[in-house]
Design a protein around this nucleic acid. Structure first.
Lengths: 189, 189
DNA sequence: ACAACCATGTAAGTAGTTACATGATTTA
DNA sequence: TAAATCATGTAACTACTTACATGGTTGT
């Protein structure tokens, strides 16, 4: 329910084509709202239909770039949506389901995969910290900049959290995979 | 892609009917994988079809309780799935999109809604801490218990994180909503 | 026996994913 | 000029959401 508004937000900053939006989603907004290019193109068509954005007058056609810009109606809609915040939904986190299943089943060989996740979270954390250095250190804090920084800090804290949890999971899984895999299955019939 | 496995996990612990599963999802597993009762009933039908669970022999019918239990094939599938962990997907967090939009648009009146979220996160945090006291304090730590505790701690840390972020957002939004809403819109045409 | 509620289920719509296709542009 | 790549788009499918319907149970 917020992909269209994520796109409008991106288009406020500057006009863009679908492929450029897809790229920006991979880098910045996408850290909090992932979208594939198919979703993006479909949504752009809908936004144009709704009169919230318009294509800039370049010659159009199947393989040609189409730049879009936001219209007044789009800004108005975005402004309306921003304050129309619903209650936080429970996140979907399949790793927690897996850990719970492994707790009930006994060792299943999760360690290898979780170790990969540890590395992935560490990489992302490093990336965010580099961006923080580059974009927010030693610059005058305006309202806009403070908010943007907060969003990035949320990403950093999130990755730190996941890193901590995955590492601790690894600890627990490693601590008794050495002895055996029998005695830990408590609730089996 | 993991609702069926979340249900299998719940059914390992003990046999259950659809409505009981829905209730348990609201309390425990649902903190990490929300599902409505419609999803649950549909998925139970599929799991039975696949031969992973079976209905206990009670007289069936539209308004009658149907208890299910997990079968050997279901355990096997769950064990396979547990270790088949894919890379972490970027979370979808509409609040971050809203903050970014508000950064670009200037004040939109988000404060009231974010204040509600602060309260919601505080409530959930309190709940998790009560559960932690009740279920994990002063009990001998087995592998199973350590994993279950880790899952709960992940929830606690998550709520603490969101609480911190929403509070800081509130700070930023409040700090200059007193003076005006004009001079903060930097990138406007 | 009527109301209120509970457990299960149906239907329609929206959002997101995966696989693939086509025209345009660049490069060897 | 053929191959590779880029930008856009179609189609089919799966997951999720919302609204509602039906039969059973419980309480008065």
């Amino acid at each position: 329910m917020s992909l269209p508004h994520a796109l409008l937000t991106a288009l406020i900053e500057h006009p863009c084509s679908g492929s450029e939006l897809a790229e920006r989603f991979d880098r910045s907004i996408g850290h909090f709202w992932h979208a594939t290019h198919q979703q993006i193109y479909r949504e752009l068509a809908r936004l144009e239909e709704a009169g919230w954005i318009e294509a800039l007058p370049t010659e159009s056609g199947r393989g040609r770039k189409r730049q879009y810009r936001i219209l007044a109606a789009g800004r108005k809609e975005l402004r309306r949506w921003v304050a129309d915040l619903d209650d936080p939904r429970p996140l979907r986190d399949s790793m927690m389901v897996r850990l719970r299943a492994e707790a009930a089943l006994g060792p299943c060989g999760l360690e290898r995969e979780i170790a990969r996740q540890v590395a992935a979270h560490q990489d992302k954390l490093d990336l965010y910290r580099r961006i923080e250095q580059r974009d927010f250190m030693g610059k005058p804090p305006s309202r806009e900049r403070r908010l943007q920084h907060l969003i990035l800090k949320a990403g950093i804290l999130q990755e730190e959290l996941r890193l901590r949890i995955t590492r601790e999971a690894l600890d627990i899984l490693a601590s008794d995979s050495g002895d055996d895999g029998q005695k830990h299955s408590s609730k089996r019939r």
